[in-house]
């Protein structure tokens, strides 16, 4: 019973979208780390993408509201930094959605800072790798700005972390 309920909650949380990237869910982004049920109380553990991410509060509110609609009145949100969130956790399905959204997915780096800071990105519009980094910082904490020299289109990449 409980494991079935937990499974249903994971499924429900897969419908809660990232407030800043509304095509991917908090589960696909690797933000939801754990779900437990104790009596009628649901505890959801999440980990912030960037520690100063201003969307974190909105994520918590969205999770609580979504679970309320499922009949869980008592929802507790915990945050953890252990282990620290990594863009490597973004699922393959989410990477496709990010690209379709016009946001280049982050390269898999396996903790290697040199790969993280590689200044190459694949243009989400034309697929060219003839691109240049314009700004390591972008419109949100998690994005950087590139320019595609092949299709002359500026684009954003999810910042590898």
């Amino acid at each position: 019973m409980t494991s079935e309920a937990v499974r249903q909650i994971w499924q429900a949380l897969d419908e809660v979208k990232d407030p800043e990237i509304p095509v991917v869910s908090l589960v696909e982004m690797g933000i939801v780390r754990d779900v437990t049920i104790n009596d009628a109380c649901v505890a959801v553990t999440i980990t912030p993408t960037f520690s100063g991410c201003p969307a974190l509060h909105a994520m918590k509110v969205d999770i609580v509201e979504h679970l309320h609609t499922l009949g869980y009145a008592n929802v507790e949100i915990k945050t953890t930094f252990m282990p620290a969130w990594s863009t490597d956790w973004i699922t393959e399905s989410a990477r496709v959605k990010l690209r379709d959204f016009g946001l280049a997915p982050p390269p898999i780096h396996r903790g290697d800072v040199n790969v993280m800071l590689l200044e190459v990105a694949t243009c989400p519009y034309c697929g060219s790798t003839n691109t240049s980094l314009r700004n390591s910082f972008g419109p949100t904490a998690c994005r950087m700005i590139y320019y595609c020299n092949a299709c002359n289109q500026p684009f954003e990449q999810f910042k590898p972390l």
């Binding site: 960037f50 520690s51 100063g52 991410c53 201003p54 390591s136 972008g138 904490a141």
Partner: peptide
């Protein structure tokens, strides 16, 4: 570009 970058750094530090 720097306006964007430095505002991000400010936000990170406050975070």
């Amino acid at each position: 570009e720097e306006d964007i970058a430095f505002a991000n750094i400010a936000l990170d530090e406050i975070g």
